[in-house]
Design a protein around this nucleic acid. Sequence first.
DNA 1: AGGATATGCGGACCGGAGTCCGCTTGTCTA
DNA 2: TAGACAAGCGGACTCCGGTCCGCATATCCT
Lengths: 195, 195
Amino acid sequence: MEDLPLVDQPPRERADAARNRALVLQAAWRLYNARGVEALTTDAVAQEAGVGKGTVYRRFRDKSGLVSALLDDKEKELQLAMISGPPPLGPDGPHDPPTAVARRTAFVHAYLDYVQSHLDLLLASETAAPGARYRLGVYQFWKTHLTMLFGDAYDPEFRAYTVLALLDAGLIQHLRTEGWSWERIRAGVEQEARR
Amino acid sequence: MEDLPLVDQPPRERADAARNRALVLQAAWRLYNARGVEALTTDAVAQEAGVGKGTVYRRFRDKSGLVSALLDDKEKELQLAMISGPPPLGPDGPHDPPTAVARRTAFVHAYLDYVQSHLDLLLASETAAPGARYRLGVYQFWKTHLTMLFGDAYDPEFRAYTVLALLDAGLIQHLRTEGWSWERIRAGVEQEARR
DNA sequence: AGGATATGCGGACCGGAGTCCGCTTGTCTA
DNA sequence: TAGACAAGCGGACTCCGGTCCGCATATCCT
């Protein structure tokens, strides 16, 4: 009786399933590095991985899930830095803990760097499924974190959404094609984060 | 010599082309009213209109173009009210002309009403093609207008983009499914427009 | 009116996302 | 170790958006 888990954990992934997940991710990276984001069709990935298409869908739900998985490692780094890294991104300097404003600004910087270096994948993931962005686990995380850092505002959660809306890959892509410099974008978002 | 136009005007649409444009739009409305946004596949619309699929694409470029055309009339109303309607949406009260802040607030109200009553079509249009939103003629218009109304801010154009980002149908849809009331959304966007 | 030409038309065709279902295989229990 | 059964697998299939191209016709000019 004592070994009944109190909450349902998702049952462990079967060995073959785990192996195939890894195969698919490796194959996707190979294709992406060789021929860019265009090459990431589900058929091609499945073939490159030597598995059936159904397997890809079973493991990753849909294309945006697959692409998100590709981004996951990078995003985890950022996430970690945000929870526990050195200030101002992380929470605690031993002598002078950073202000919430400083941490928000630092987040904007770090996230924009992240967007800048993975714009194509981010677009692919957001494009593949409508509202994909909001389903991403990390989106929830960023939102919660920013909400906390906006604790003194009137509707902190809305403020968090505002900043995240400005960090939308589609919007940034548009601004870039309109000729905006990264500096100008950065300045704008930063100001929103600062107030 | 005198009747040479100084600028190239797009040559007038051929009679059969105009007729087909109308047929397609009517067919699309019929399908939409009968079976909702789901029914708006390009094949179905073409068939209902009694034209070939190629014709639909020739007239409307892509699916988001077609859906945008469906929204056009409504949007034109709003656009007109904004340029020349009565204050506070329009520019000039004879006795006390509305402030820029009042006009921005009024715009947010009016646009949110618009989004509220056409959310499904807006989503369809934004979903159909990546970045479709930014290609819409009216997007440009809203942006320019808001930029003007933010004339005193540091980077007025960025402020305009911020407000428009908050009015993105995908974001609003997400907030709605998260249980947000229209009032809360309205209050948030309004505050952004006001500052 | 009649010929020249650009514009438009239809629908076969293509590529890619996502589903379905009969078969296989890992895992757990006895 | 054997049997039961959930979980996973593959790939044919469906659906839809978008393109292509040979044929038709509106418009313009003389």
